[in-house]
Design a protein around this nucleic acid. Structure first.
Length: 113
DNA sequence: CGGCTGACTGCGA
DNA sequence: TTCGCAGCCAGCC
C-alpha cells in the first residue's frame, strides 16, 4: 500500500481525480496548481506511489510535450495509451495532441491548495 | 540528521 | 529542429 497519507500525495491525488475523461494534463501544471512551480518531478514521483490505486486516472498525466513518459510504469507498456485512446484522446505519432486535450488544473481545478 | 533520487521542464547550442 | 544540461524539493534510505 503506497503512502497516500501525506499532504502532498493527497493533493496530487485530488487534482488527478479532477481531470475529466478524454482530457490530459501535465506534471508541471499539477505542480503549479499545488504551488510548487518548478517541481514537476515531485508530481511524477508522487504518481509513482499512487500508481495502481483505484480511482486515480494517472494515465491522464503526460509530460509537457504530450509524450507518455509514465507508460513504462503501467502493467504493460501500451496500457497507458490504450486507456487514453479508449477515452477518445487522439495522438500524433507517439504524442497526445495537447492543443485539443490539455486540461489546465490551474484554471479548472478549484480545491484546497 | 544528511544525502541521493526522480512518470519534468525550459533554455541554450 | 533535435539534443544536452542544470534546477527543483518532498520522500526514502
Amino acid at each position: 500500500m503506497p503512502r497516500l497519507d501525506t499532504d502532498f500525495h493527497n493533493r496530487v491525488y485530488a487534482v488527478v481525480m479532477a481531470i475529466p475523461e478524454g482530457r490530459v494534463t501535465t506534471y508541471g501544471a499539477i505542480a503549479e496548481a499545488l504551488g510548487l512551480r518548478r517541481s514537476a518531478r515531485m508530481v511524477g514521483r508522487a504518481l509513482g506511489a499512487l500508481t495502481g490505486e483505484p480511482g486515480i486516472p494517472c494515465h491522464r498525466v503526460v509530460n509537457s510535450s504530450g509524450a507518455l513518459s509514465g507508460a513504462p510504469r503501467f502493467a504493460t507498456p501500451t496500457l497507458m495509451r490504450e486507456l487514453l485512446e479508449a477515452e477518445g484522446v487522439t495522438f500524433r505519432g507517439e504524442t497526445v495532441v495537447m492543443g485539443r486535450h490539455f486540461w489546465d488544473p490551474r484554471t479548472n481545478y478549484r480545491g484546497e491548495l
